[in-house]
Design a protein around this nucleic acid. Structure first.
Lengths: 230, 230
DNA sequence: TTAAATATATAACATTTGTTATATATTTGT
DNA sequence: ACAAATATATAACAAATGTTATATATTTAA
């Protein structure tokens, strides 16, 4: 199961792992702690890259608007994730937008500092390029799921994935805390239709909800649901 | 319109453009012409990279199998496109598979030769990384379309896109020549359901078919169809 | 704290898509 | 050129999803 979930996980929380003590110190030295208010854009499609972010607390959504203007979320970043490096590496503009879903605490590394780090730490550049390759595979997997799976299977997968990603560093049970709108935009359905699926899941006993929080009660059953062939 | 279509085009036919004469010669020198039979895998998910390919004639599909085993095509390469460089850059295994849809003529560049070229031609490395960023955006756009658009809109978009990509170097009208199965796996539906949409499009007069070939008769009308909000 | 704004839940109905089945056309291998 | 295999077309029905509408809960801002 965990193996399946990593196919949908950018693993961008691991970028600064496996550095030597001195390399790590060099990274820490150029990190600037920032707080960012809920609803603020960290960056937006077409904008010029300023640097990269590591989230220390809170969540942010990465999305694109389709040509008809609808928002499509394709990733939700959380604690320890690093983001914003694609455009920087390629010296181009942002391909997508990123917005804080909650008040955030982040560490920011300015563009020039980061490019200098990449020169000084070849292993970091290598890790980054590897990771971009991995992320490419993640997007391809998401395409497969959206194209082939029905709504309940997609919901089951994303619930398992979000639970895994949001709460892996946490002891306490926190559940999945997203607006219905964001969750619908992530799995590719309407809010009303999502509500119907959630109701079914509740009746089956896989999940419980409290306010907008979703708690997974029976992961095994969700795994069954995501096997559904279309 | 063309602007919209480039959002769904990897533009991997442009990788060796903008090289100096001597750089171009260096590239040509390490290219090995090969013919590849229809149905052959150029590479497959999990395999170790051997080199990169530039297609000189024919088409190839890039796909992934979802965890339930279904094939999801996410790109179709055609004349002049270069492919296979992701895994090579990141020194990792292939994230996806690629199969010849017709007998192919390709130029192959072996892994070591290509890595040497990248060192010798910094502009090429830069172009490559930039392009990977662009491809990332393309996948995100595909995700948005698959998640938000209904089948007719998806079909309209992909027909316009395939026509644009397959026939931009050609004077003669060649149409879109894919099996119904491949086209269905590209737009994320079943073959039968695709057939129904094609029939509707024929009745509307947007397209005509001859054998499996699809000819676009009224691109404007297809553009209307793809505006459909879900 | 309260009123207004926003978010969520749910139902009924319309539309789209999946599924199964069968017939016909086309391609492939001998 | 022929038979067998494969691909395509189509219809009828079932299931899933979109859409509209309304009610209730929760959050936000004065």
């Amino acid at each position: 199961m965990k193996d399946l979930l990593t196919q949908f996980d950018f693993q961008s929380n691991l970028l600064f792992e496996n550095l030597s003590e001195s390399e790590n110190q060099a990274v820490q030295n150029v990190m600037e702690p920032l707080t960012i208010k809920k609803g603020t854009m960290l960056f937006f499609e077409g904008g010029i890259p300023t640097g990269i972010f590591q989230i220390k607390q809170g969540k942010a959504k990465k999305f694109k608007r389709s040509f008809s203007g609808d928002e499509q979320i394709f990733y939700i970043y959380t604690q320890e994730d690093v983001l914003g490096y694609h455009a920087l590496l390629g010296q181009e503009r942002y391909q997508d937008s990123c917005e804080a879903l909650e008040d955030l605490k982040v560490n920011f590394i300015a563009k020039d500092d980061f490019l200098k780090l990449l020169k000084e730490i070849p292993a970091l550049q290598q890790t980054l390029i590897k990771n971009i390759g991995h992320e490419f595979g993640v997007l391809a997997n998401i395409i497969a799921v959206l194209a082939q799976k029905n709504q309940n299977a997609r919901l089951a997968l994303f619930l398992l994935l979000l639970e895994y990603r949001f709460n892996r560093n946490s002891q306490t049970v926190k559940g999945i805390d997203l607006t219905r709108d964001d969750l619908a935009n992530l799995i590719g359905t309407s809010q009303e239709s999502l509500g119907r699926s959630l109701k079914q899941f509740k009746e089956l006993g896989c999940i419980e909800t409290d306010k907008r929080n979703i708690y997974i009660k029976d992961p095994k059953q969700l795994e069954q649901l995501l096997q559904t062939k279309i």
